[in-house]
């Protein structure tokens, strides 16, 4: 398993911190945006079927 990781010598911690942070921020944004779009679409559906109690 370990040999799959690249050898990044003394700065490994900094490099992984950057990419970890990037994955977290970008991944979190993607999830947040997709969830927001879903919620907006569901709200519109509910409104169009006239079912206001569902909110």
């Amino acid at each position: 398993m370990m040999e799959l990781l690249p050898d990044l010598d003394k700065n490994a911690a900094y490099i992984w911190a950057c990419y970890g942070l990037g994955a977290l921020l970008v991944g979190g944004t993607v999830i947040g945006v997709v969830l927001k779009a879903r919620a907006a679409k569901a709200a519109l559906r509910r409104m169009q079927t006239g079912d206001e109690d569902a909110e």
Binding site: V33, V34, K36, A37, A39, A40, K41, A43, L44
Partner: peptide, 8 residues
């Protein structure tokens, strides 16, 4: 995707 959400 965000624009679609806003349109909806």
């Amino acid at each position: 995707t965000l624009m679609r959400a806003e349109i909806w």
